[in-house]
Computed example of a mutant assay.
Amino acid sequence: MACDITAARNEVCKDAIGGLDAIYFINFDDAPYSSVVFDATNTDVVETINGTPGTVSAYKYELKADENTFEETIVSDRNTGSTFFEGVLNVSLKKMDLAAHKEVKLLAFNRPHIVLRDRNDNFYYMGARWGCELTGGSIATGGAMGDKNGYMLTFTSKRLFYSFMEATDEAGLNTAGLNVVTA
C-alpha cells in the first residue's frame, strides 16, 4: 500500500516554542504551483520556487504579538475516501494607517501564497497550489488608551499537506527563489 507508515518516533526534547516571527506574502500569479519544486528525496519539503534565486517578491511582515497563530486541521472522510488539510493563519497587525489599510484591501482581493517563519526558525509554505484566502478578520480600535488599534486577519488554505521549506533563514529564502522585500 502506498500509504504505509515508514518511521517510528521517540519522545522529543522540550526545546520547541510556539509562535510566529514573520510571514511573507507572495502574489498568487508570481509563483504558480507549476513553479514549486519539491525535494526529490523528501517530497514534503519545498526546495525552490521559480528555480532562480531572488526572482519572486515575498513581502515580509514582522510579527511580535502572541496573537499570531497557525493551525492545520486534518479533514478526513472514510465514506468518500478523501483527506485534506485546512490551514488557518491568524495575524495581528498593530496600528491602523493608510498604507496598511490599502495592503489589507489588496490581500482581501488577492489569494496570496504565504511563507510562515516560526520562532524555531522553521519555514512553511502555505497555499502552494490554490493560494490563501483572507476569510475573515476585523479592523478596529478599542475604547481605552491601552486597547489594540489595528487589524486581525484570518487566512485559510486547503491542500493535500502543507510543506516545510529547506530554508533556515532569509538567505535560504533567496536561494529558494524569493526576493524578501522589507519595509
Rank of each mutant, 00 (worst) to 15 (best):
I5N: 15
T6Q: 15
A7Y: 15
A7L: 11
A8Q: 15
A16K: 15
G19S: 01
Y24F: 14
F28K: 10
D29W: 11
P32C: 01
S34I: 06
S34W: 04
V36G: 03
F38D: 00
E47K: 11
E47W: 05
T48N: 01
T52P: 06
T52N: 07
V56Q: 02
S57D: 15
A58T: 04
A58G: 09
Y59E: 14
A65C: 11
A65V: 15
E67D: 06
E67G: 04
T69R: 06
T69C: 03
F70W: 13
F70K: 11
V75P: 03
N79W: 08
G87L: 05
L89A: 05
V91E: 03
M96S: 12
A100H: 05
H101E: 13
R117M: 11
R119Y: 05
D121M: 08
F123Q: 06
G127F: 02
L134Y: 10
G137V: 09
A140L: 11
T141C: 07
A144M: 05
A144T: 07
M145C: 11
N149P: 02
G150R: 00
S157V: 10
S157E: 08
K158S: 14
L160C: 07
F161W: 07
Y162A: 13
E166W: 10
A176Y: 03
G177I: 04
N179E: 14
